Every structure is written in structure tokens, then in C-alpha cells.
Computed example of a mutant assay.
Amino acid sequence: MNKTPYEAQQFANVLVSALVGFNSFDIYIAPTFTALDRVREIISSSNIKLAAQNMYYEDSGAFTGEISPKMLKELNVSAVIIGHSERRKIFGESDELINKKIKKAISEGLTPIFCIGETLEERQKGLTFCVLEKQVREGLYGISKEDVSKVIIAYEPVWAIGTGVVATPQQAQEAHEFVRKLLAQMYDEQTAQQITILYGGSVTPENWFGLFVKKDIDGALVGGASLKESFIELAKIMSRVII
């Protein structure tokens, strides 16, 4: 919940100018709902894609305050963040609800950015892998091998979001590797390798290189650093690594 429509429009202009020619990887920005239309106009002729921060799983109806996938598609939104830890914690979103949203996003041609991650208490109790397995299995329940390849997974340790504390490259890699192996069990090895797994949690230009070079970390779900020009520095680091 950052940036007014005007502020988002101004920042989108900065990003479009700075990120020209960055075509070796996908760049999505996910402004708040009220800024989607203005940002869409700014990035329409650029290499930047538009994402939304959430959606509901129905087309329309008595769901006051919710946004449908059809509304997003009319604004040329191509991806949507689903199951972010703040949605889970503050708004009580369950794995079952998240599963419905993922299925609906896929059916509407939107790319789900499916967030998973453990709390500090869960990590300290040694429950990280148990939590991740439950979230992945229930979030992807009933989704076919063909459709799961359309999902982007974002591992975001809750204890590292907005805290300034970042998972070490080894901690992040262990979680990503676990998720990749779990996907291979649920589907197959080829499918697991095709799925993009992002890391999210206090990513900055100072720590990003050490994370991104890890085998199973394919990109980042950027929080605070996406609100300022640090986002451009992250893209520059990725462009130097990807050949």
C-alpha cells in the first residue's frame, strides 16, 4: 500500500527510461489497484509487464472491496501476486482460498505469483520444510502438470520481509531446492525445472548477487527496494549475471 496514482505514474516513467534494453529476463511491477490504469499507459510500449497485488476468484458479485480477474485483464495485467504473507497473516487467507485464486488466475490467462514462506517461530522450531510442503501441496491442489508450469512460486521467509534481515544465500537455496524437489515429486523433474522460483525478503542491491547466483533461485519478488531506484540496480545486477 504505497504510492498514490500520481506517484506511481512518476516512478513508472523513471523505470521505463532506466530499464530500456533489459530483455534477458522478465520485469513485472505491481502497483496498488488505484494506480494500475495510469501505470499501464506509461509502460505499454516498454519491456515492463504489469502485475496486480491480489485478486478474488469470482468474476463478479456481492464481494465488496474485491477485484476480479476480468477487471485486471481489461487493464492489461498479465500476472497477479497470490497468497502474500501479509494477505495470509493480516487478512486470514487460507491455503484453500489461495488454491481457488491460483486456479482462477490460470483459467483467465493470468500468471499467478504464488507466495509461500515460514514465520520466525516456525523456523526456530525446525518446521520450515513442513510449512513449505503444506503450503505448496494445498496451494497447488488439483492443478495439472500442464497448468502448474504457468505458475511462478515466490519463497518469502516471513521473518525476512521488511525487517532488514535477509536469509543467507545458503538458507534461501536450501528452501528453493526443497521446493524444487517437492515439485518433482508432485509432478516430474522436467516440470519442476521449468517452474520459476523467486526469492523475496529484504532484497537489496547489496545482498542480491549472492542470492541470485544460487542454483535454484531464479529471480526476486522485491518489496521495499521496488519503491525506489534500488529496483533499477537489482535489474542491472541480473543483466550482468544472465548471459
Rank of each mutant, 00 (worst) to 15 (best):
A52T: 07
A51W: 04
Y141H: 07
S230T: 06
A12L: 06
R88H: 12
Y199E: 08
I27H: 07
A235T: 01
G224P: 02
R40V: 00
G117N: 05
R180S: 13
K125H: 01
C115Y: 05
S78E: 14
L15K: 15
N2D: 15
S85L: 11
F25M: 07
K70C: 04
Y28F: 15
R88T: 07
G164W: 15
E229P: 00
A175S: 15
I116Q: 01
M55H: 07
A62H: 11
K134D: 01
G65F: 00
E156A: 06
C115K: 01
F178A: 11
K215H: 09
E133N: 05
Y28K: 13
A160C: 14
N76G: 04
V241F: 13
V80H: 06
T4C: 12
D26W: 02
G126N: 06
K236A: 01
E138T: 06
Q9I: 07
E133C: 05
R180D: 10
F231L: 14
W208I: 08
I102Q: 02
Q185K: 08
A235Y: 03
V158P: 01
E86G: 13
I152L: 10
V213D: 14
Y56A: 08
I113E: 04
A12M: 09
K49W: 10
A51E: 10
E177Q: 13
T34C: 00
P5N: 12
S44F: 14
K73C: 06
F178I: 11
Q194R: 08
E7G: 12
R240T: 01
E206H: 06
A192I: 08
G164H: 11
I106S: 04
A30S: 07
S239Y: 10
V14E: 15
D218C: 00
S149R: 08
G61W: 13
I242D: 03
I195A: 11
Q194A: 15
L227E: 11
I143P: 01
E118L: 00
P169Q: 14
E156W: 02
N207Q: 15
V80E: 02
Y57E: 05
I42A: 03
L183D: 01
F212C: 14
Q135Y: 08
S17Q: 14
E174D: 12
H176N: 09
V39S: 03
F63N: 12
N99D: 07
W159T: 00
A225D: 08
Y57T: 02
L198N: 05
S44G: 02
S149I: 08
G201H: 04
D37S: 14
V158D: 03
L211F: 15
I152H: 09
P157A: 09
D37C: 06
A184C: 12
V80Y: 05
Q194W: 04
I106F: 10
E7P: 05
L234P: 01
L198D: 02
P157L: 07
E96L: 10
L110T: 05
N207G: 07
G224A: 07
Q124D: 13
K73Q: 11
H176E: 10
I161C: 11
K3E: 10
G65Q: 03
F231V: 11
R180H: 13
Q173E: 14
S144K: 02
P31L: 03
G219F: 04
A192H: 04
